[in-house]
């Protein structure tokens, strides 16, 4: 659907070259909600803007539905842009126009008749839940409502792709959640592929099925949200993931453990899917001569799959603890020993 092939972008400022993007390759499939995360300056917005040709790469190419964006003439590019919706952090609504006229603009650009526009706008307003605001001006709306208008405007021309540039970053958490639910509905009901750029990991956790992590213009890690979140490889990914999926033993417990004179090991077990969890803990307690103590547990839902993280203290004789570790090794779960 969207194919970034070895994209580079170099800016030259005061004879100093900066690589905004450095050989980035990614594939977004039809139906994905693809999230790109990184700190500001990582190049993610530049990458997003390449999909509709607002930015052009200095190396590599972008294919949208098999079409190379950068070889198109300006009028061909404009036709492609009409099939790609875009929403923004600052909404970018026309303050001089009513909600109705804002949503009607892309239709007017397409020379759609006023009667048809009226029907389409009211349909869109109903979809985003703002039917009562049709004659309001943007300044009379809250941030969340403005973004709903932005979304309605982006959907007006029935795009197949929706680009979201930090679309929830100016909103409070509750509003963010409602906008994310709306995006999810757009993906599910209208079958629109969504590409999201954000610095908020919970946006990725909440709705994305794929994620790419960017740093200094490079994609350092990408894949399904489930894989990346359950097994982050890069430091920065771990940092991001830790803020939504806690797996650290609280300090007070660490302190207590340091005073514990018994023979023990601390194991971090990670379960994907619900079925195995109870069984494993039950077996350890029942079949081995050890005492287990849960130091920390968290259960998170990702893509309708449960990710459970348990940190347990196994207390007993060393050979018996070894037997427990052998048993865990044979189970379908990832685990590691934790040193404190």
């Amino acid at each position: 659907m969207i194919n970034f092939i070895d994209i580079s972008k170099t800016f030259t400022m005061k004879k100093q070259q900066t690589n905004a993007l450095d050989h980035v390759s990614l594939q977004v499939r039809a139906g994905d909600i693809f999230g790109v995360i990184g700190f500001s300056g990582a190049g993610k917005s530049t990458l997003l803007r390449m999909v509709n040709g607002l930015e052009t790469p200095t190396g590599g190419r972008i294919e949208v539905d098999g079409q190379d964006i950068n070889t198109l003439s300006f009028s061909e590019l404009r036709q492609v842009r009409k099939r790609i919706g875009m929403i923004f952090q600052q909404f970018n609504l026309l303050n001089s126009k009513t909600v109705y006229d804002n949503i009607a603009i892309p239709l007017r650009l397409n020379r759609v008749g006023e009667k048809e526009i009226r029907a389409r706008v009211s349909e869109l307003l109903e979809f985003v839940g703002l039917s009562d605001k049709v004659n309001a001006y943007p300044n009379q709306l809250s941030g969340g409502q403005k973004q709903r208008v932005g979304i309605a405007r982006a959907l007006a021309t029935n795009p197949s792709i929706l680009l979201c540039d930090e679309a929830t970053s100016a909103l409070d958490p509750e509003t963010t959640d409602s906008i994310l639910r709306l995006l999810e509905k757009i993906n599910r009901e209208l079958k629109i592929t969504i590409l999201i750029v954000t610095h908020e990991i919970h946006v990725i956790q909440r709705i994305c099925n794929k994620v790419a992590v960017m740093e200094h213009g490079r994609v350092i890690e990408w894949g399904s949200v489930l894989d990346v979140f359950s097994n982050p490889q890069q430091e920065i990914t771990k940092k991001f993931v830790q803020t939504v999926i806690a797996d650290k033993i609280p300090d007070s417990i660490v302190q207590k453990l340091q005073g514990d004179r018994r023979n023990y090991k601390i194991l971090r077990l990670q379960f994907l899917g619900e079925n195995v969890r109870d069984n494993v803990l039950y077996r350890i307690n029942k079949d081995f001569d050890v005492e287990t103590n849960i130091l920390f547990a968290s259960v998170n839902e990702l893509q309708q799959t449960v990710l459970g993280i348990f940190v347990i203290q196994v207390i007993g004789e060393s050979p018996e603890i070894e037997r427990v570790m052998d048993y865990i090794r044979n189970q379908q779960l990832s685990w590691q020993e934790v040193m404190i």
Partner: peptide, 21 residues
């Protein structure tokens, strides 16, 4: 930027976006 993303021509950017705003 929003206008460009909608596929507006240069004239349309001036007429439908810059002037009203």
């Amino acid at each position: 930027e929003a206008a460009q993303a909608m596929g507006a021509s240069y004239f349309e950017i001036v007429w439908y976006f810059l002037l009203p705003e």
